[in-house]
Amino acid sequence: MVDKIIIENLSLQYSDGTESLRGVSMEIRQNAVTVLFGPAGGGKSTLLRCLNRLNDLTEVKASSGRILIDGENILDPKTDVIALRRKVGMVFARPVTLPMSIRENIIYGLELMGEKRKSKLDEAVERSLKLSAIWDEIKDRLDEPAIALSGGQQQRVCLARVLALQPEIVLLDEPTSGLDPISTGKVEAALLELKKEYTVILVPHSVQQAARTADHAAFFLTGELIEYGDGKTLFTNPKQKKTEDYVMGRFG
């Protein structure tokens, strides 16, 4: 197993004093699902947003540490953030389709890169929608507004939109929090399929989902990484008392 991402002593504090990270260090493996879980305000989303520099949009008071992706420190000011965000795709908690057709949503990122060839774009649409397990459901209505789809379908379109860019890493921030169990099942199934090609980092919306999907799991509490290890072991036999309490549902 290769370490795709190495996080070294990462700390971050927002200007308004909310959710922050304190000295987080961890390695994230390639072609696996790594789950970041823990109670709200633990720093999971913040960590995700560091990995594609989306935190650049937020007022950050102070940050330190390094994040190496394929050996390069992406927190370096000289980093090409546009290229980084194409390489590190993100799916958000609420399915946000852009106000355009399904097809236009999928090819949005590619068009930004200047891809105009119809064959390439069509190919990307089909490939990414199949990977997101939604192709069969919507292949005949690609020119309809994406907003007309159900929440679960929209979220899979959002995933497809990320995959169309052929990223190497896929970040998912509670991607099923607003979905019904059937849609959730479909998204989770798609995730397990994804890790064959991608490095997947998931903030799950429940401990159960964490346990179902994790190859590796990291437990975060108030900005600190409490425990990190193999998914199976961490959920059945945690080493830390705090992890055990949370996994057993004693607090949350």
């Binding site: 989306l54 949009l57 546009i82 965000r85 194409r86 795709g89 946000v96 106000p99 949005y108 959002c158």
Partner: peptide
């Protein structure tokens, strides 16, 4: 215009 459109667009590599 919802803020989420901006966030999503930027996250897909838009300037």
């Amino acid at each position: 215009v919802p803020q989420s459109f901006r966030t999503v667009s930027i996250s897909l590599g838009a300037t």
